[in-house]
């Protein structure tokens, strides 16, 4: 299994980084009444799709999306 394929593609690291930044901005400063979460999710999903097209294992893409799942508020009661 190929691993850490993302490290061979700086543009994807940047895209994931952008998604993370948007997510943290919303989480920390509540910058946009939730819209940045949608934007963050869209960026992360796009990055994952591109990652899979670059030949990464599906689990690798799933692992990065799990990071965003961990960051989202409102999952726990």
């Amino acid at each position: 299994m190929q691993e850490w394929v993302v490290l061979r593609h700086p543009e994807l690291v940047l895209l994931y980084g952008l998604a993370l930044l948007l997510c943290l901005m919303e989480k920390k400063w509540k910058a946009s009444r939730g819209w940045l979460f949608y934007a963050s999710c869209a960026c992360a999903a796009a990055a994952s799709a591109m990652l899979i097209l670059q030949g990464a294992d599906l689990r690798e893409a799933a692992a990065y999306l799990t990071v965003f799942l961990l960051l989202m508020p409102g999952v726990r009661a």
């Binding site: 919303e26 509540k30 009444r33 939730g34 819209w35 979460f37 949608y38 963050s40 999710c41 992360a44 999903a45 994952s48 799933a62 999306l65 799990t66 965003f68 799942l69 989202m72 508020p73 409102g74 999952v75």
Partner: peptide
Amino acid sequence: TEEAGRQVSGVLMVLV
């Protein structure tokens, strides 16, 4: 914000 987080969590769960 929390409502949006909940909805995005659902989408992320489906994707994962």
